[in-house]
Nucleic acid binder design. Structure first.
Lengths: 153, 153
DNA sequence: TATTGTTATACTCTATAACTATA
DNA sequence: TATAGTTATAGAGTATAACAATA
């Protein structure tokens, strides 16, 4: 029946996303050691392997200087490592360390536990609706990631 | 069939939420004028009406001094107003201004437009799964909000 | 000359500790 | 003495502009 998305559908989704962001922020606040951008950058490195600094910056939607500083902090804490490229001496290849992987693992466990507590409070029907939507939500998030808004920096 | 949530369900949801947060951050970056906390605080004021500074702080999961400063910035920009309580002279009641409401409205429009672009790229089945999950996601977010973790500050 | 990354500088956002004013 | 909020100070996180090194 829902052939195309109506504005009111989109607005409801948008409002829901706003609330979910607030929830996630409370589940793993920056006080837990990593800012949202720092955590997201680590995750990205975990998936991609060694990655250029400029690619990391555009993937996170922040500027190159901001990523330089973030990587400097992450390197100081031992979560990433800066290496050079054999092909191009200008390039810096950033990679996640074992310690960085361990940190991600720990954060995921903590959040999973907290989420478990919340999800268990949901009525069964709602719980199933949420899980049923996970693949679609992943697709949506992926589209948002590869969308080239703010690539032009 | 899904009687209780399995760990792998929860982990998939958790990972999905991480990606959605990254997407939302790119849709309305802090460069658009308001940080996530600032926007969330305004939204909260829009819903609740005049609110004590300490309540705002605990609702957002930040400290009282951080909220003092955020409210100072928002007041300087004209988005909120500080008033006293007639009952208790220690209390500050913060309220949103017409300008603050207008800002929220504008941001919502911008995000809704951007989301529309993404949602239209989803296959119809995924689109419907997302919309079908919205009420459940709202409920989940609400549980996360009223959950009293990090109330003890 | 263009690209990759860093440095310099400034502002937001957050925390903890110490303080003021009121209850 | 306890509570509501502010001030002081420090550090993370971000931006823009100017720079160095390499292609």
């Amino acid at each position: 029946m829902t052939k195309t998305a109506t504005d009111s559908d989109i607005q409801a989704l948008s409002a829901s996303l706003e609330r979910l962001v607030a929830m996630v922020r409370r589940l793993t606040p920056p006080s837990a050691g990593l800012s949202l951008t720092a955590a997201s950058t680590l995750r990205s490195l975990e998936l991609s392997g060694p990655c250029r600094l400029s690619e990391l910056a555009s993937a996170q939607g922040i500027t190159q200087p901001a990523m330089t500083q973030l990587v400097t902090r992450l390197e100081r804490e031992g979560y990433v490592h800066r290496g050079g490229s054999p092909d191009d001496a200008r390039v810096v290849l950033v990679n996640i360390t074992a310690s960085g992987r361990a940190l991600l693992h720990h954060r995921r466990q903590a959040r999973t536990e907290a989420l478990h507590g919340l999800v268990d409070l949901l009525p069964a029907a709602d719980r199933e609706a949420v899980f049923a939507a996970v693949p679609a939500l992943n697709l949506l998030a992926e589209l948002g990631q590869t969308d080239d808004r703010s690539r032009n920096r």
